[in-house]
């Protein structure tokens, strides 16, 4: 795969968009929209089966309890359950890696594009509302928006931290028991880390976006909003309602104690 070729094609596409819209900001928004719409067919099946899998989790756990020791029987039972509920098996690891690389390339093209004021002799108009898109946002509006939208998106998708109970607790020998315990510790640690990251990363994004050209921040906000809308139509608000309820309860408790 020749990455520089893809880079050039995308750059040219961005310039064409700029010619049409006459503005860097609008062309970034249009670029985000087009690219993400093209990626929808790739991400949709995964999202669908993910939702179904989440709904099926209790039944899967039941199967695990029944076939705990016999791995082959468990797999067969799982496959049958998937067939019954019409779940496509998830795509494998490598297609996902390819998709991630594609997304990162897109991002890099955009960063390169935003830091320019002219491309192949075409002067770019970097002014968009109050922003100069090649400079960082002076009023910190876009960075904050980027952080908030990212937090909302991750709360929608990742349902807090669940400790996956993958390891059956029926090991006989002491050595095996010890190893299982270690694995459980690792899983617990991972879940806790994920929960922390959920809240720390948006803050980091906001801080990074303060330094970056605001065109990049605009792309972040636009693509995150797109993901939020997509996710909303697939699974609804997900974990957001849960956390909203929790915070509301928290404040109610506080007002009662006053």
């Amino acid at each position: 795969m020749n990455l520089s070729l893809i880079n050039n094609i995308l750059m040219e596409f961005l310039v064409q968009l700029h010619q049409i819209t006459g503005n860097l900001g609008l062309s970034i928004l249009a670029f985000t929209l087009v690219v993400r719409l093209l990626l929808v067919p790739l991400s949709l099946p995964g999202m669908k089966s993910q939702k179904k899998l989440r709904d099926l989790q209790p039944e899967l756990n039941k199967l695990k309890a029944i076939h705990g020791k016999d791995k082959k029987a468990l797999q067969l039972a799982q496959m049958e359950l998937y067939k019954k509920h019409n779940i496509n098996p998830l795509s494998g690891c490598l297609p996902q890696v390819v998709q991630i690389v594609l997304l990162i390339v897109l991002y890099q093209v955009l960063v390169a594009f935003v830091s320019k004021t002219e491309f192949n002799g075409v002067a770019l108009n970097p002014h968009f509302f109050w922003l100069n898109l090649t400079q960082p946002d002076k009023f910190f509006i876009l960075p904050v928006l980027a952080g908030i939208t990212q937090l909302i998106l991750s709360l929608m998708i990742l349902p807090g931290a669940e400790t996956p109970n993958l390891i059956p607790d029926d090991a006989k020998s002491k050595k095996l028991k010890e190893e299982n315990k270690k694995e459980e510790d690792t899983a617990e640690m991972a879940a806790a880390m994920q929960k922390q990251m959920l809240f720390i990363m948006p803050i980091m994004t906001a801080f990074i976006a303060v330094r970056f050209p605001s065109g990049v921040a605009l792309y972040w906000v636009a693509s995150t909003v797109f993901s939020i809308i997509q996710q909303y139509f697939m699974t609804g608000w997900g974990g957001v309602t849960l956390y909203l309820k929790r915070t509301l309860n928290f404040f109610q408790m506080k007002s009662f104690t006053k």
């Binding site: 991400s43 994004t205 995150t224």
Partner: peptide
Amino acid sequence: QLYQALLRPFLTVWLVQNFGFVSQCKQN
């Protein structure tokens, strides 16, 4: 194990927040 406990959760959250990409594993 370090990957499982530190890098993997970071990657999961990073991919979701920056690209709206949900990585998922079908193997168990």
